[in-house]
Design a protein around this nucleic acid. Structure first.
Lengths: 132, 132
DNA sequence: CTAGTTGCAAAGAGTTTGCATGGCG
DNA sequence: CGCCATGCAAACTCTTTGCAACTAG
C-alpha cells in the first residue's frame, strides 16, 4: 500500500471543497458532480478513502452510499452529533452532560464509546414542528 | 402501492429466521445464502423492505450494505443500542440515565431523539481489552 | 528516477425493477 | 377470481480495480 502521500491538485481541490463546506455531509456523487471539481470518478473515491484514513474527513454509512464530512482538526471528536432524519442537518452536541454520558457507559456498561463515530438520530426543531 | 399483505411461506420463513436470531444483524446476503431459506433474491429484498416498513424488523445502513435486525415487538424501541466497531456485537442499553438523556436533548437542545434509529458506536469490553 | 497518482473503462457488489407465473384470501 | 407475491433476468447505482500515462518529490 501507499505510505507516502503526494500533494496533487486533485487532492487539494477535494480537500478545499470540504473545507468550504465544513458542516455538510457529502456523498462521493456530490463531489463528482460538483462543477468546481474536475476530478475523475475513481480518483474521487481513492482520495476520499485516503483522506478518511488520514483523519482529515470522516466517513459514515447511509442508505444512499457513504457520506463524508470535513473533520475540523479533530475539534469534533469529543462531542456527539445529532442528525435530523428529515432535513439531514448535523448539529454539534457540545455539552457537559453528554461527556458524563460517555463516562457512565464506560464505567457502568463496560463499553468504550467512540464519540466521533456516533450519530444520534432524530428530528431537529424545524422539522419536528412542520411534521405535526 | 401494496396495502394488504399476504402471508406466504417465503415471508414466514424469513421472519422465522429473524425470530431465531433475535440479536443478530443480518444483511440481505446472509438471508439469501442461508441454507434454511429457499427464497429468490429479489423476494428477499422485497420482504425485508416490507417487514421493515411494518416495523417487524429494523433496518440500518452499514459499509457492506443494509443491516436488518429483528424487532422484538417494539421492546427495543425505547432504549439505545451500542454497537462494537470491532466484533459487530449489539448491546442493549436499558438504563434510567439514558432515558433522561433523550429528555435532556429534547428540552435543552431542541432535538427530538429517535432512540430506535440511533446506534452508539465504540468498543465492547472484550474487544477493548484485546486491542491494547 | 522512483513511487504514488490519475483517468478511463471494465468489473464487482448490493439493490431495484419489469414481466409472466403462481398462490393467498 | 382478484390482487399481491414470487422468480428470473436485466437494469441501476455505488464503489473498486487493472492498466498505461503522468507527476510530485
Amino acid at each position: 500500500m501507499a505510505d507516502k502521500r503526494y500533494r496533487t491538485k486533485q487532492r487539494d481541490s477535494i480537500l478545499a471543497y470540504f473545507a468550504s463546506h465544513p458542516d455538510a455531509c457529502l456523498t462521493a456523487k456530490d463531489i463528482i458532480e460538483s462543477p468546481e471539481i474536475e476530478v475523475g470518478e475513481a480518483t474521487v473515491f481513492r482520495c476520499l478513502s485516503h483522506l478518511a484514513k488520514e483523519g482529515l474527513i470522516k466517513k459514515f454509512a447511509s442508505d444512499e452510499g457513504a457520506l463524508y464530512q470535513y473533520n475540523r482538526e479533530g475539534e469534533c471528536n469529543h462531542h456527539f452529533h445529532l442528525k435530523c432524519l428529515h432535513c439531514g442537518k448535523i448539529l454539534h452536541l457540545d455539552c457537559e452532560l453528554m461527556h458524563s454520558v460517555s463516562e457512565h457507559i464506560g464505567k457502568d456498561h463496560h463499553f468504550t464509546v467512540d464519540v466521533s463515530r456516533t450519530v444520534i438520530y432524530g428530528l431537529c426543531e424545524d422539522c419536528d414542528s412542520t411534521k405535526r
